[in-house]
């Protein structure tokens, strides 16, 4: 596996390890980490620090029968066996995302115009996760946003002011970025995108349509 070029920020990796992110952000972090061993190693090293925090924790006395209860509990459950072989990974949809959409052909897309489509995923409302489909060669309207926008490429590639993003690459954009991603001409582009505030389109018509399409 060749690692992607565009990675998660250190803050996102830490917050994923400590467990303080909203569900939609966890989803995109877990999806990128599935495709990027550099970030996976980083997450696991922050988890190691979590292990150190646990190990040096001041102990709290348990109730007298705690161990007996635990022994009774484990005798009622069967340990899982070691999986011999994992199923082949899907070429487009990483496992964490698969738990939300099943497979790509089951996605219920809603058109946004110019062939661009989206599907909003079912997560808690602190942040929104959507799948975006951008036909080859098409540009998504110029937009900026109030909060954070994370975009992970799953198929194809796109380019914007920040560079070129291929499968596995994640773009971390803040409200200072006004960008117009353009999909590569060779292949339709599918992305997972997460935002914590509505996007702001800079043209009049897209702005009118925004409440209707929830983008």
């Amino acid at each position: 596996m060749t690692d992607p070029i565009h990675h998660l920020t250190e803050d996102l990796l830490q917050s994923y390890a400590t467990g303080t992110l909203p569900e939609a952000v966890n989803l995109i972090v877990a999806s990128h980490v599935s495709l990027c061993d550099t970030c996976r190693a980083a997450v696991e090293s922050y988890e190691a620090l979590g292990g150190a925090v646990l190990d040096t924790q001041e102990v709290e006395a348990l109730s007298d029968d705690a161990l007996d209860r635990a022994m009774a509990a484990i005798r009622c459950v069967a340990p899982e066996t070691r999986p011999i072989q994992l199923p082949d990974p899907d070429p487009v949809v990483p496992a964490p995302l698969r738990n939300y959409i099943g497979s790509l052909d089951k996605v219920r897309w809603r058109p946004l115009g110019l062939g661009v489509k989206q599907a909003i995923l079912d997560t808690t409302s602190e942040a929104t996760a959507r799948l975006l489909f951008i036909p080859a060669g098409v540009a998504v309207p110029d937009h900026s946003h109030k909060g954070l926008e994370l975009t992970l490429v799953l198929q194809g590639a796109f380019s914007d002011e920040d560079g070129r993003f291929e499968r596995g690459d994640i773009e971390v954009a803040d409200d200072s970025v006004e960008h117009m991603p353009v999909a590569d001409i060779s292949e339709d582009c599918i992305c997972l995108a997460v935002t914590d505030a509505p996007l702001r389109f800079n043209g009049f018509l897209p702005r009118m349509l925004q409440p209707i399409f929830r983008i």
């Binding site: 467990g19 966890n26 980490v33 599935s34 292990g51 646990l54 738990n99």
Partner: peptide, 21 residues
């Protein structure tokens, strides 16, 4: 730690925790 963290997210934040492949 990772098991405890996931249980905490489950209980206190009441949300799923997507894990890497």
């Amino acid at each position: 730690f990772t098991i405890a963290r996931n249980k905490r997210i489950d209980r206190i934040r009441r949300q799923r925790r997507p894990e890497p492949e």
